[in-house]
Simulated scan of single mutants.
Amino acid sequence: MTAGLTMPTAGFVLKTSGLASCTVTAAPTAAATVNGTWTNGAPSTLKFTDASVPVTVVGGFGCPTSATSSKFNATYKVTDTTAPASAITVTG
């Protein structure tokens, strides 16, 4: 099964400091949705592999200011906070 995750406009901002002081903004001009894989289980998981999100990068020396997208990988464990022992199952 697939599931989508939507990042709101400018929903993630990463700032680095030191040799390269950069600011990376994901979904800079509009919300961005990426698709992942849903797996039922205890807990269920939502996994993203090489999900591409638009970005803008500003900064000086060492910052990849020409980058227009960035890929990320993540696995989220999804549980019911009101009943942690209950499994969340999606059928389609």
Rank of each mutant, 00 (worst) to 15 (best):
P84S: 05
K71G: 06
K71F: 06
T37P: 00
I88C: 00
W38Y: 06
N40Y: 01
V90S: 01
A83R: 12
A31K: 05
P8Q: 13
P28M: 03
A20S: 15
L19W: 14
V55Y: 08
A10E: 11
T39V: 11
I88M: 00
T37C: 01
G11I: 15
A32E: 09
V90R: 03
F12I: 11
T81M: 03
A32P: 05
G18H: 07
S52N: 15
V90A: 03
D80Y: 02
V78P: 00
S70F: 03
V53F: 14
V55H: 08
T49R: 08
C22S: 07
W38R: 00
Y76W: 12
T91F: 00
F72Y: 04
A20N: 14
S69R: 08
P28A: 03
A27E: 06
A74E: 06
A87G: 05
A20G: 04
T91L: 02
K71T: 09
D50W: 12
T89S: 02
N40R: 02
S70W: 01
C22K: 08
A67P: 05
S52V: 15
V57A: 08
T39M: 04
A87V: 02
T6C: 13
S52F: 13
P43L: 13
T25G: 06
A27M: 07
P54F: 09
T9R: 15
A10G: 15
N73V: 10
K71C: 01
M7A: 12
T29S: 09
G59T: 11
A32M: 11
A42M: 02
F61C: 05
G18D: 08
N35D: 06
P43F: 12
P64Q: 07
M1W: 05
T82R: 09
G18I: 09
S66N: 12
A31W: 08
S69T: 12
S44V: 01
T2K: 10
P54A: 07
A74G: 02
Y76A: 09
T9C: 07
G18L: 10
T6S: 15
V55N: 08
A85D: 02
F72H: 02
A87C: 00
A30F: 12
G59A: 10
A74K: 04
G60P: 04
A51T: 15
G41Y: 05
N73T: 13
L46V: 09
P84E: 07
M1E: 12
T89E: 00
S21D: 14
W38T: 01
F72D: 04
V78Y: 00
S52Y: 13
T45G: 06
M7S: 13
P28Q: 01
T81I: 09
S66K: 14
N35I: 03
